[in-house]
Each structure stands twice: as C-alpha cells, then as structure tokens.
Nucleic acid binder design. Sequence first.
DNA 1: TTGAAAGCGCTAACAC
DNA 2: GTGTTAGCGCTTTCAA
Lengths: 349, 349
Amino acid sequence: MTADDDIPRAPTLEDVARVAGVSRATVSRVVNDTRNVDRRIREVVQAAVAQTGYVPNQAARSLVTRRTGSVALVVSEAEHRSFDDPFLGRVFTDPFFGRVVSGIISVLRPRAVNLVLMLAETNDSRSQLIDYLRQGHVDGVLLISTHADDPLPSMLIESGLPTVLSRRPSTPIPISYVDVAQHVGAGLAADRLAERGCQQVATISGPMDMPASQDRLNGFREAMARHGHAFVPSVEGNFTQDSGEQAMRELLDRYPDIDGLFAANDLMAQGALLALHDRGIAVPGRVAVVGFDDSSAATASRPPLTTVRQPIEDMAAAMADLLLAHIDERQPRVTSRIFEPTLVVRDSA
Amino acid sequence: MTADDDIPRAPTLEDVARVAGVSRATVSRVVNDTRNVDRRIREVVQAAVAQTGYVPNQAARSLVTRRTGSVALVVSEAEHRSFDDPFLGRVFTDPFFGRVVSGIISVLRPRAVNLVLMLAETNDSRSQLIDYLRQGHVDGVLLISTHADDPLPSMLIESGLPTVLSRRPSTPIPISYVDVAQHVGAGLAADRLAERGCQQVATISGPMDMPASQDRLNGFREAMARHGHAFVPSVEGNFTQDSGEQAMRELLDRYPDIDGLFAANDLMAQGALLALHDRGIAVPGRVAVVGFDDSSAATASRPPLTTVRQPIEDMAAAMADLLLAHIDERQPRVTSRIFEPTLVVRDSA
DNA sequence: TTGAAAGCGCTAACAC
DNA sequence: GTGTTAGCGCTTTCAA
C-alpha cells in the first residue's frame, strides 16, 4: 500500500469528460448551466458527473472568473482590546448581531453567495484583514464598524473592493451605507416620555465617538426641548448592560427626582432596570424607561421595555442587496438607504 | 477613456519580477519567506513588491498548493425552521457562542488561518453547505451541532474533510471531538444542592435529543441518588430563557414544595428565576437554583447564579488545535479531549 | 452545438 | 542561490 492509494485525487472536469465521451468545454457548459447544449448530451454529462462524484474546484474557477461567490461580514472594533477582553462576547452576545446575520443571509442564500465572518479588533488584525480581502478571497465587504475613528472604511475604499457600511460613516467619505433615521427614533422616545407627563428626564447615551450615539442624544434633546424641557442630563454608556446599570446609578445619585429615562439601546435600558430594581424604584410607576432597538432584551427584561424599533433584518438585507448590486456594476454609485424607526409600546413607559 | 483604463489589472508575480529584475520563482520565494534567497536580492524584491502594491492571488495559490488557509465554523440546527424563526437570534444571542468564537480565533489568528462562518438550519442549506465545503473553500471544519440526528457529521466524514465536533456525537462515529465531562458537572450541581439541605429537588433539562442534555440529566439524577434522593422530577426545555421560565412554572404547579433546582444551562436558569420572582418565591431563600455554563447570563441575573463552569474558550481553542493538527497530518487519528467542569458559587445556591 | 487551445497566477521540481 | 518549466483545474474565445 502506497500513499497514493490513500489519497485519491478528486475527479476533475477532465475525468468527467472522459467518462461522458465529450470535451472539457462541454462538461463545463453543463455544469454551469449554459444554454446551447444538446439535451441528450447534457443528460449523459450529468450522469457522468453523478458517477464520478465531481465537484468543481473553486480555486480553479475563481482564477479564471475572478469571482469567489463569497462576501465578507466584517465586525470592526476599537483598538486597545485583547482576547481576555469581552469584545467577542459583547459583539455576539448583542441580540442585534443575530438579526443582522439573519437579514444578510436571507438575501445571500437564494443567490448562492456565501458569508465569511471576519473580526478586526486590533490594528494588527485590521491590516491582516485588509491583506486577506485584497487577496481576492471575497467579492465584497459588509462592514459593521463600532467606533468613529475606524480606519477600515477608508482602507476598503482604497482597496477598491465593493463595500457597504451598516451606518453612516463618522466622516464624510464616498462609501455606500444603510442606516436608520436616528433623530426620528430618539424623537419617538422623547414624545412618549413627554406624553406620560415626565418632568425630570435623563438619558444614557452610547459611546460618543459613534455617530449613532451622537444622533440619538441630539435627537432626544432636540425633541425634549420642543416639549419645553430645556435640560436633559446624560451619562455615557458603552451599549452593554453593565454600563447601563452603572450609568443609572450615577444618574440616580445626581438627580434623585428622575421620572423618565431614555437609554440609547435596550441592553443599557435593561441594566438601568436592574439598578432601579435594586433601589426599590418602581418602573414605570416612579420612573418610565424607553429603550432603543427592540431587541430580545426588550421582552426578556422586567418589565418588558417600551422601545424604538429599527427594522434590523430589513436593513441588513438592504446592505446585502446594495453590495450585490455594487459587485455586479463596474462603477458603482455611492448610495445610502435610510429606514424609518417605530415605537413599540410595552410596560416600561 | 476606455473600460481598460478604469479597471487596471492587479499586479502579478510577473510584474514584480520584471520590476525587480529577477524570475517569478525568486519573487515567490521571497513572498513566501522561503530560505535560500540572497539577502540583497530579497531586499530588491521586497522593494518591488512595495512599489507595485503586489498582493498574492489566493485562487492561483490554492490551485497549486491545495490549501486555502481557511477553516469553517459550521453551526447546524434541526430542520423545521424558517427565516422568521429566531434560530439565528438564538444561536448568536447565546452568550456561549461569542466565547466559542473567541477561543477559536485565539489559536487560528497566530497561525494566520481564517474563519469562515457557515450556517445550516435547513436540509437545503445543509447540502448546499456540503457542496461548498467539497469545492475546497476551506481546509477543515469545526462543527457545532445542536441536535442529535444531524446528518452533517456523517456527511463530513464521507467528504473526507478534516472535522472536529464541539460535542460527543450522538451516535458513535469515527470523528474527533472536544467535550466537557457532563456527568461530573451535573454531579457538582447535585452536591451543592444536597449540601444546602434541599429536600425536594427538580431539574430543567435541555432538549433530550442532545447527548449533552441526556448526560446532564442522568448525571444529576445519579448524583442525587447517591445523596439519597430517589426521585428527581424534570421538565424538558430547549436552552432558551423562555423555555426555562415556562418549565419552572410547570414544575411549580406540579411540585409546589420544590426547594432546589438544577437548570441544564444558565439561560434557562435565568428564565426560572423570572418565574420564581413572578410568584414571589425567594431565591435562594425558598428555592436554591444552580445553572450550567457560567455564561454572562449567570452574572446578569438577579440573584447572580451559582453555576457549573465549563472552560468554553479553552475547549474551543482545543477544537481549533485538533483541527489544525488533523489538517497537517495525512491520516489523522480520531481523537477526543474532555475538559473538567468546576462549580462557581454565587448567590442563587 | 461542440471541440481545441489559450491562458488565469502561482508553486515546486528540476536544472544550472 | 536562482532561473526554467510544467502544470494545478477551470472558463472562454475561436473555429469547425
């Protein structure tokens, strides 16, 4: 027994052609479902494919077509993190993420395009990532970037790879993106709190280096101002439950009379609920709470959260659509698609 | 202006060789860091690479090396799900998942191996997946399979692709896997509850078509029996918080005197806590609760959970190690690695 | 409608 | 230590 016996070569087009008694070109046409192949020959070839167990070699195919049939989903996060750091936990644990993937897959799968998940949480991994992408592993990139001064969007533009962002970039650069009307969403939360007659409203914002956080904070303050509330104190969180809990405590210490809260996402709202609960403050009795996202955290918390819903799946699907379009065009036009949020009323406000 | 001007060809080895005034082979040697290249020539070539902005074409490289430098992380789930179904949400939301990815990346990244995330939640997507894998997109696969009669493990064996499972397969087949000593973990929970003097202990199990669920249930019952408790009622959940909440209600209705609970994972324990809270039952005062996983849910819940910790990151890293080893060997030996769980004591028991 | 043949860009013998 | 050369398996003109 020799090594050659143990590792049989996978069948190639050539093998199938030999079995079917036709040329490689014809087999290729059948496999790729090109028209202009005689029905009878097609059938013979298909039988030969089945018999040999032929599967096309993707590398060979990409080499000539210059297409891989895959796109990357890149999740990028600020430097200064390590593996011990809960970065990955935070990203994947965020109920947000599953819905994004779900929306993307729903448009990719029918078109037989695959999703490659890539993470970039250090500068090292970021340049490694760019190298990987430039090597032609994927046809395009969907980028979820979680902080403002992320160099990745610009790097991707430079690389020439079709790219779509999940949010408006923090600085104006020529790149397509999908977003929700953040101001409008924050306004919805403000209106709800004002309607309930809240007099002392505060907010827990997201990290202020993210455009989404800025927009939600500004949008909320502007809307409260329209309701006559000139001053809305805020504490900055980082979108985790822990940070929400801590921020709520801080707010309570400084403004004991708070009777309304807007948290920039559901996870922080959930944390706030915990802090409120620990101090024996009734929700919505003494403090009304509104979240943002309508994630699974909204229904899991006690009481269930009134929250601003963004159509995450639809937005993610739009990202994928946009990317696929960009890949097919030669000179894609930079495009934005903005979705409208809605208010979902539950028990917390 | 012609189309040719707009889409300049990416530089190839040939281009670099011309600029550096050497042969393609030499450039290849430099790029791949092969020894036996004169220091001075190496520098000239590196300069040429920088000047041309050369990046190796992965397809061409794979075609000859028969290596892709990527491995797949496949998450497989039972049929009968659709996109509206929270499958994706469930998988990614599970705090467990982020830690798995984190552990895997920690060994893949230093070896410059990439992770391709793939989902298989319908039979269609399962065969599509196998096709994709057989096309040589990846060098091996890490499989996280969430139900018993999953055909994927066998399909993968058949495909000849190096594969490592995250759990012992439900039927004995020749495939490598990593697991935690489930019996031991469940025994730890039982010991804790028995030590506290619980007299009427119940358990919420995972889906009974999963070996892990079976092992935890059996292990728990055996250990309780050793403490003299002949009968331990159980209700089946599906590892979600909701199912835990519901199961707890059911248990309470049928056995009002319950004073100890073992939930087969933290998420269900958290749900149980909610149900207990809703009925005004104090934890751990009237009912002591032990979870399993030591996920972030354990610290997020009120009270924080006493729970069985599995070293998820280490286990995931071991999976990646094992897979890389399999990829390097020609005839890998089927291997198992079992990790020891520990008890983490917090407030709930 | 089918076949012949020319590469796609790279690595790896094998010479020199 | 370096260059020459033969493919890897596939798609795609171009002829027939």
